[in-house]
Design a protein around this nucleic acid. Structure first.
Lengths: 332, 332
DNA sequence: CAGCAAATTGGTAGCGCTGCCAAAAAAACC
DNA sequence: GGTTTTTTTGGCAGCGCTACCAATTTGCTG
């Protein structure tokens, strides 16, 4: 079944109806260049009367830059990315930019394909998660001439603009905090690290820090698949089944940590006296649990906002470190 | 600081380099029309060599329909919408469509403005939440000639395509369930209902059902602002401070219900014997809590998938009821 | 009121691609 | 070998708009 587009009103028709030239209509509509108040009224009246909707496709083709911003993100299930999009979209909308997105499922190959598809729209900028990309992706982005923003990971070399913080530092500080609190038999529960390289970076720095204090990680449990509350619960259960004398567990993020927390609640494991729990992300829900979750709060929305701001103002290449905040909750 | 676009490779240059005509390149690239294998190779080689990236802006302008699908959604904080986007984007990507979105913050006026901005991109379809829109929005969408999909709310007249379920039915069934379980002194904790009209519909049908069984709602607490775990906790606390003998509370959604659940855990209120809790949405987290949350699971991802499918296949106008599932958890 | 600067306007050549048509080449047929 | 068919190809006119430039009108000055 073929769908028929209704005949569309064009700028030329508006010009005709208003009795002015095409360029005049264009100027009035974009409020750019000069025109008299009278003309303006005539044009607007015609626009109104005909129900004219400008065609941005044509406009973009005729002019240069596109006011489209492309997001190539790993996932929409992980709240991190909707949060970034939220921050960015607010700023973009204010500046009359449009957000376009696609989801890679943490697959670098798919990232490359989707980035290529995005570039076909000649966006003003492409926003990607992290700084790990295939060679092809990097080459393509470099050649594209459009701005590239890498989000949420400063542990690497930025292509153009990078906004976020250091995941390695987050891992380090998490370890330092647990050590400072006196925990010595520390375990880890995480999700698929090959896909989520940022979680991988946190984990490896976490371990390095423990090693540096001669308190190596006692055990870890890594679950296939994405992070989730259910997986966190399952992961902790398995870890505890294998290792009985842990006094703290670091989770790959708050979803997982909440799962662990629920497991303890269900099993009557006292927190933090019997077992401490530490997460990552600083989700709101972690502050409403009976015991607030000890975690690291990441600037997710701000990352989106700043990234968008830099694109909109066409800022020079730079890396913006937004840092993170360690929250001393009641679980560790 | 002005940003300079690098000189872009055009189709004409590829044609030149490959020693063929422009239309031939176009045909090869779109794999449409006929051409010899030899030609195909020559063209692909030139494309590779020059690093050509087709310009979809130009392509869309020249042809008719665009492969853009516009989402105008109320929020990205409420997990419902990322879930819908997730379902839709998977299907759209498979079919080489692009998703564009903007966020209305539950403001109908903003919805109208953003929908207008979207139409300027001449999308193949516009997807909106619910079926409550301003007159201007409706008129504009009607006139646009593009497909319109209304999501997650079947209680109203659809403009074109509607995919989701009945929120009124959800409210009704929730009430019926609580009554069946023997609860009689029922309260409600919700978030801003003027903005989230779907939550409003659930609430009013819920109340009607209670009334019909001569068991009117005992008390309700409505918090300004968006739904959140924190608000749910606060809301239940306030409600219980005013009303001492409730035996069940219906929450506007699972976030709020989890807040209530945490409040009970923290205060040592036995669930469900002392107080039952019922939510809405069927979030995964509700299944990992020590006691699984009693709630209604909504087909969020499926809604996105089906909606995208219908657009991609250019299906005739229709309303698709995906239903929902009542989950008898352990909290009610 | 001439004389010049400034503010308004309209015309038109593309932007890079696709769709259509006709031309050319290849294949099939008698 | 000479058609007739079929396949493959190139040329070019737009798609609807913006950028640029030139033309026109208006406003001021002396």
């Amino acid at each position: 079944m073929e769908f028929k587009h209704q005949p569309t009103v064009t700028l030329a028709e508006v010009a005709e109806a208003a009795g002015v030239g095409e360029s005049t209509v264009s100027r009035v509509l974009r409020n750019h260049g000069s025109f008299s108040g009278k003309t303006r009224e005539r044009v607007m009246a015609a626009v109104e009367r005909l129900g004219y909707v400008p065609n941005r496709i044509a406009g973009t083709l005729a002019s240069t830059g596109s006011r489209l911003v492309a997001f190539v993100i790993p996932s929409l299930s992980n709240i991190v990315f909707p949060d970034v999009l939220r921050g960015a979209s607010a700023v973009l909308e204010e500046n009359r930019y449009q957000a376009v997105f696609s989801v890679t499922d943490y697959d670098p190959g798919k990232e490359e394909a989707l980035a290529a598809a995005m570039l076909a729209w000649r966006p003003a900028a492409v926003m990607l998660a992290g700084c790990e990309h295939t060679e092809g992706t990097v080459k393509m982005l470099r050649a594209s001439g459009c701005r590239v923003v890498e989000l949420l990971d400063l542990d690497g070399e930025a292509l153009d603009i990078a906004v976020g913080f250091s995941n390695r530092a987050a891992g380090r500080e998490s370890a330092a905090f647990l050590l400072k609190r006196g925990y010595r038999r520390i375990g880890y529960v995480g999700h698929d690290l090959n896909r989520d390289t940022r979680a991988g970076k946190r984990f490896s720095s976490f371990c390095e820090t423990l090693d540096a204090h001669d308190t190596p990680l006692v055990a870890h449990e890594i679950l296939a698949g994405a992070s989730s509350v259910e997986n966190g619960r399952l992961g902790l259960e398995r870890l505890l089944a294998r290792t009985t004398d842990l006094d703290a567990v670091y989770f790959s993020n708050d979803d997982m940590a909440l799962g662990g927390y629920f497991h303890c609640l269900a099993e009557g494991i006292a927190i933090p006296s019997k077992l401490a729990i530490f997460g990552y992300n600083g989700l709101d829900i972690g502050r409403a649990t009976p015991q607030p979750l000890s975690t690291i709060r990441t600037p997710r929305v701000a990352t989106g906002e700043i990234a968008a701001q830099l694109v909109v103002t066409n800022a020079p290449p730079q890396a913006v470190d937004l840092g993170f905040e360690l929250i001393e909750g009641a679980t560790a």
